Amino acid sequence: MTTVSVGRDTPPATEGPPPGPPADRPRPRRRRPHDQPPRWQVLLPLGLYLLFTLIPFYWMLLFALREPGSDSLVPWPVTTEHFEKVWTERSFDTYFVNSVRVGVATMLMTMLVALSGGYALARFRFRLRMPFMLALLCSQFIPGALMLVPLFEVFRELSLLNSLWSVILAETVFQLPLSMILISGFIRNVPPSLEEAAWVDGCSRLRGFRAIVLPLLRPGLVAVGSFAFVHSWNHFLFALMFLNSQDRQTIPVGLNTLIGSDSVDLGALAAGGVVAAVPVVIVFAFIQRWLITGFSAGAVKG
C-alpha cells in the first residue's frame, strides 16, 4: 500500500537581492534637534555684539598708539609718547599704586566680612533674619551720592579724610550687602551633613568650616572678590570727595585731570584709559572660569 503525504506546498526559492525600499524613494533627511538653532543664528548676534564691544577698545588703542596730530585709522608707526607722558608727567604711576592698594584692601575686607556674615545667614536661624536680608537687598537701591555728606562727616570725625582708608571703608560698606547675599547662596549649596560629619570626627565649627566648606567656596569667593575689586578700581566719586592731595588720588580721578576746561589731550586720555583697563582685563582673563562658575552656583539657591 502506498501512502501519500498531504501538506502545504512550499514556493520554490528564488535567487536575487533581498527585498528593500524602492530605488526611487528618497532617504529620510536627518533632522536638527529642536533645541539647536542654526549656526548663523548664533554666530550673527555674537559677531555683532563682539563688533560693538571691540570698536571702543580699538578706538582707544588707536589714539593711544598713533603719533600726535595723525588722523590715520591704523596706528602706524606706533609710538609710546602718550604712555610716557601720562606715566611720568601726569603721575599715573602714583595713581596706579593707590588704585591697587584700594582695590586689594577692599577685596580682602569684603571677602572676610561677607564670608562670616553669609555663613551666619545660611546656617543659623534667628529672629529678624528675613527682614535683615530684605534690608540688605533694599540697601542696593541707595545711590552712593546720597551718602556722601554723612560719610564725609564720619570720616572727618575719625581723622580719615585724605587717607586711602576712607575710600577702602566706604567701598567695603557698599559692597557688603550684595556680597553677603551671594556668599550665603554659595554656602546653602554645601550640604550641612558634611559639616556634621566633621563635628562627629571631633572638629570644631571653625575647623570644620575651614576644612570642609571653605575649599568648596572657592568659585564664590573669586566671584565676590573680583566684583569688589573691579568696582573699587573704577569708582570715581568716593576718591574725588575723600582724597584731596594729588599723591593720594586713584586712576579714575587721574583720568579726570586730563580733561581741561578748554581742550582735551585725546592721546594722553586714551593712554590713561589703557593703563586703567589692561590690569582688569588681565585679571578677568585668568579668573573667568571661576567667575562664571561662582555666579552660576550662587544663582541656584538663595
Results as ranks from 00 to 15, higher is better:
Phe57Gly: 10
Glu81Trp: 12
Asn98Gln: 07
Arg123Ala: 05
Phe242His: 01
His34Asn: 08
Ala276Glu: 04
Ala64Ser: 13
His231Asp: 06
Leu269Asp: 10
Arg205Ala: 13
Pro19Phe: 09
Ile142Leu: 14
Arg27Asp: 13
Arg90Tyr: 08
Val102Cys: 05
Phe96Cys: 04
Trp76Lys: 05
Ser72Pro: 01
Phe152Glu: 04
Leu108Met: 09
Ala271Met: 02
Arg30Gln: 02
Thr110Gly: 06
Leu65Lys: 09
Leu176Glu: 00
Asn189Leu: 13
Val100Phe: 06
Arg29Thr: 13
Gln249Tyr: 00
Arg127Trp: 14
Val300His: 04
Leu54Val: 09
Leu164Thr: 09
Val42Ile: 14
Leu266Ala: 10
Gly47Trp: 01
Pro12Ala: 13
Leu108Ala: 14
Leu240His: 08
Gln36Val: 15
Leu62Cys: 05
Ala135Phe: 08
Ser179Asp: 07
Val100Ser: 03
Thr172Gly: 00
Pro279Met: 14
Leu182Ile: 13
Leu51Arg: 00
Ala122Tyr: 04
Asn189Ser: 12
Gly254Lys: 12
Met60Cys: 11
Pro192Trp: 08
Ala170His: 02
Phe155Gln: 06
Pro191Val: 05
Gly220Leu: 06
Phe242Tyr: 10
Ser72Cys: 04
Glu84Ser: 13
Leu112His: 00
Arg90Met: 07
Ala145Met: 14
